[in-house]
Design a binder for these strands. Structure first.
Length: 824
DNA sequence: ACCGCCGGGTGCC
DNA sequence: ACCGCCGGGTGCC
């Protein structure tokens, strides 16, 4: 539901008055996530579409929520929909548009519902009425004059991309690099092409065939370990494999023989088709049935017709490539066209037919479309351009002899033609490429454009040729465990905590009771895990949280339940955000209903309107707000008490690191922990031992993070050799291949999370063998977590199938808890 | 009992 | 969903 624009007649000055503007937003919930595939693809700050479903059988007010790829994620919760639907239907609201906070996106795939912002647009004439209706309904309209919140609809898109400008550039340059994987050259099909190809043409042919037939993910897409797919640029996620980009830009210099190469490509698929029939009988025939044809449509300016014809005559066997010139007087029969291997037409012919009823070129599902001298589609408004973009074909090529990245015309139509997502979506193209390009003061736009084009195009000049690297293969990875004995003192703490936990569990008794007290059990598990790492993680850290300064609000530490909730959030290194301003909270407030906001954000709302929690609508008064102590910023915290003896695990890590440094002083390591605090605790001892270290965690801004990664990537004397990283901060796309050793400081029961961490180091670009060392405390919850990992792996690999409906699922969970506590 | 309370079924719309 | 909510079963202690 985009805000509609009245662009058709904008002569009169008063016209602007009709433009819808952003009234503000409300916080609603996406409900029913469990029922819709779109939940897998919700990512942080994703814009989601709201689609009114007046004919929904269950609720006439239904409003569907689609993710940015158009896949349904759920519905707007019933209560909110009941308010919004009449306003939308009555045109009091011109549009509504959702945005999902990053923290909510993180749990969307597991949750039943997540909160999100719904931005509301109204025309001035209807705005007052809409606002009044919203107020009457009890929904809190958060106005745009909120300090953190100055945006228009387009600003939302900008906001989304702005957040990681540095990351974005790194991603672009990475795409530019990775494309250069070597592709084998190919000989022209002898039964069609009579000429001998030059080496560079064979290489080009190999590349063209590779592009058409490889099943690689399109640029910027990566597969994650749970079988889903993520676009590292836009953060879109999907569980359906994005289709490969079959085609690209063939931009060799004039005179290198592009047309001959293309004829070889066309002959190739024809020849293969014939050969395949013999070799693979049934299978091939089935595929053929699904395809309409093997006919290639060539679109070019009429001046180039003759070039194609002469090249055909000169280089191909007579009659081996049947060609039809679709220009001037021409057939209307699809069948007739499909009898040929090549149909050549002009851009203007296509343009003419674009709006006609029976145009065979428009309707045919072409095997392949080639746009030759593609400059014609520079004007995105032109009918010809639209016609070309609308053509049906799986394989799409743009052929040009001029280096297009230096020319000034709009390349957006090209992306649209190639169906190269997300650049084929105008707003993405604009914000990622076009705007930076126009700003010009830095090279951002051009650099991105070049790597983008580099990823999908082949361009050789007459002077330089080749430049291909050998295919990358990744060296081996070995995983070892280092078992650690706790000191007598640590063991005492640990055993005591474990005993307490076991007693509690026994006290709860039956499964239901355990489930009711789930959080308490988790609390013990958390504490035990912390004790394995370092006594200092627990429980002193909670005591050390001092009340916020001079506020009239009550300190959360007087409310143990809420404190526990906050503690687990912070300890797990989860960076949460205020759902009102979508930023990390400033002066964190936790409500009695356990929702987290900035102090200013929530106060403003409570003052302005209904005094209810924007997330759960429970009524709130000042006594329901608790101020959380400022989460200490790591930098202020590095002066850790060094008098304390080092924990057994820290000592073990130091030993391992020292040994590795002795063997190879230049080797680099990454230490992963799930506890941000642990990383901070490690800083002091490691520095004291003479290591040059860096830390990377979730509390850092995207900019800071990329800075850290960059620094760690430097090679040479006096460069950092140890990176302390939190599992979650080193997310998808982060490349830590300068390191060759990984220390997993603490285990996690989901093996996938650890895999992901290892893969930051063990991935394309790694030149050394990778060693992964798990640090495991003997006879502790950590050993049991390893066992659980094993079980999970079995579960994942399907050994247990899918027989866990309802109760059985619960049983597994309770068993897990009991097992963790050493009771089964 | 035209109630309260318990506990199972249930879960977007 | 480890919730809330609905509606059926139930009914001194």
């Amino acid at each position: 539901m985009a805000s509609s624009s009245s662009s058709s007649r904008r002569a009169a000055a008063g016209d602007d008055d009709e433009e819808p503007y952003l009234l503000g937003f409300i916080i609603a919930k996406i409900a029913g996530l469990r029922h819709h595939r779109g939940r897998y693809t919700i990512s942080g700050r994703e814009n989601v579409g709201l689609v009114r479903e007046p004919l929904n059988a269950h609720d006439a007010n239904a409003i569907r929520v689609d993710n940015s790829r158009g896949v349904q994620a759920g519905y707007v919760d019933r209560a909110t929909a009941a308010v919004l639907a009449p306003l939308l239907d009555g045109r009091h609201l011109a549009a509504a548009h959702g945005i999902v906070p990053a923290s909510a996106a993180r749990y969307a795939r597991a949750a039943h519902q997540v909160p999100f912002q719904v931005h509301l647009f109204a025309r001035p004439a209807a705005a007052a009425l809409a606002a009044a209706a919203l107020a009457a309904s009890g929904l809190d309209l958060i106005h745009v004059d909120h300090p953190e919140f100055a945006l228009s609809e387009s600003a939302i898109v900008q906001e989304q991309t702005k957040k990681s400008q540095g990351d974005v550039d790194r991603l672009f340059s990475r795409v530019g690099e990775e494309r250069k994987s070597r592709v084998d050259p190919m000989e022209a099909p002898g039964d069609v092409v009579v000429s001998q190809l030059f080496d560079h043409q064979k290489a080009a042919l190999g590349w063209l065939v590779h592009r058409e037939e490889s099943c690689d993910l399109p640029p910027f897409w990566e597969e994650d370990e749970d079988g889903g797919f993520q676009n590292v640029l836009t953060n879109q996620k999907t569980d359906e494999r994005p289709p490969p980009l079959k085609g690209g830009i063939f931009a060799d210099d004039m005179g290198l023989g592009k047309t001959l190469t293309l004829l070889s490509l066309i002959g190739m698929s024809k020849a293969r088709n014939v050969g395949g029939k013999k070799a693979r009988g049934v299978k091939r025939r089935k595929v053929e049935g699904a395809e309409e044809s093997r006919t290639t449509l060539v679109v070019c300016p009429p001046s180039v017709f003759s070039s194609w014809v002469t090249q055909l005559e000169e280089h191909t066997k007579v009659g081996s490539l049947k060609t039809y010139l679709y220009h001037g007087e021409r057939t209307k029969e699809k069948k007739e066209l499909l009898k040929h291997d090549i149909v050549i037409t002009s851009y203007s012919t296509l343009g003419q037919e674009f709006e006609q009823e029976n145009s065979p070129v428009k309707d045919i599902e072409w095997f392949r479309v080639i746009l030759d001298e593609a400059h014609v589609i520079k004007n995105s408004a032109a009918r010809q351009t639209k016609a070309v973009i609308a053509l049906n074909a799986e394989r799409r090529w743009v052929v040009t002899g001029t280096p297009i990245q230096n020319s000034s015309f709009d390349l957006y139509p090209l992306m649209a033609f190639l169906r190269f997502q997300p650049f084929s979506i105008k707003s993405y193209w604009q914000s990622l490429i076009q705007l930076p390009l126009e700003r010009k003061n830095n090279g951002t736009g051009l650099a991105r454009l070049q790597s983008l084009l580099g990823a999908i195009s082949l361009r050789r000049t007459k002077e330089t040729e080749g430049g291909s690297k050998s295919m990358v293969s990744i060296p081996r990875k070995t995983v070892l465990a280092c078992y650690i004995d706790l000191s007598a003192e640590e063991r005492e703490y640990y055993d005591q905590m474990e005993l307490e936990g076991k007693n509690k569990l026994r006290e709860f008794g039956d499964k239901d009771s355990i489930l009711r007290n789930y959080s308490t059990v988790l609390y013990f598990i958390l504490r035990l895990r912390q004790l394995c790492n370092d006594v200092a993680l627990c429980p002193l850290d909670i005591k050390s949280w001092l009340p916020g300064s001079g506020s009239s609000l009550e300190d959360v530490s007087k409310n143990p339940e809420l404190l526990k909730k906050l503690a687990s959030l912070v300890d797990d290194g989860d960076d949460f955000e205020c759902p009102i301003c979508l930023s990390p909270p400033v002066k964190t407030i936790i409500t009695s209903c356990t929702h987290i906001y900035c102090q200013t954000c929530i106060m403003k709302i409570l003052k302005s309107s209904s005094s209810r929690c924007p997330i759960c609508r429970r009524s709130l008064c000042k006594e329901d707000l608790f101020i959380a102590p400022e989460v200490k910023h790591p930098d202020e915290d590095s002066s850790v008490n060094l008098d304390r003896p080092l924990s057994s695990k820290v000592q073990a890590l130091l030993k391992l690191l020292r040994r590795a440094a002795k063997e190879d002083p230049s080797s680099k390591s990454v230490v992963f922990s799930q506890f941000r605090k642990m990383l901070i605790l490690l800083e002091g001892p490691l520095k004291a031992a003479g290591f040059n270290i860096l830390r990377l965690d979730g509390s850092m801004s995207a900019k800071k993070r990329s800075e850290v990664i960059q620094k760690f990537g430097r090679i040479g004397p006096d460069t950092p050799t140890v990176l302390l990283a939190s599992l979650k901060a080193a997310g998808a796309g982060v490349n830590l291949t300068v390191a060759s050793t990984v220390y997993l400081f603490d285990p996690w029961w989901n093996p996938g999370v650890e895999e992901q961490a290892m893969d930051r180091v063990h991935r394309i670009g790694q030149t050394k063998e990778v060693k992964v060392v798990r640090l495991i405390v003997k006879d502790s919850i950590e050993e049991r977590m390893l066992e659980l990992q094993e079980r999970k792996r079995e579960l994942i690999s399907g050994a247990f199938g899918r027989k866990k409906g309802g109760k059985e699922y619960k049983e597994i969970r309770v068993e897990e808890l009991q097992m963790m506590m050493g009771m089964k």
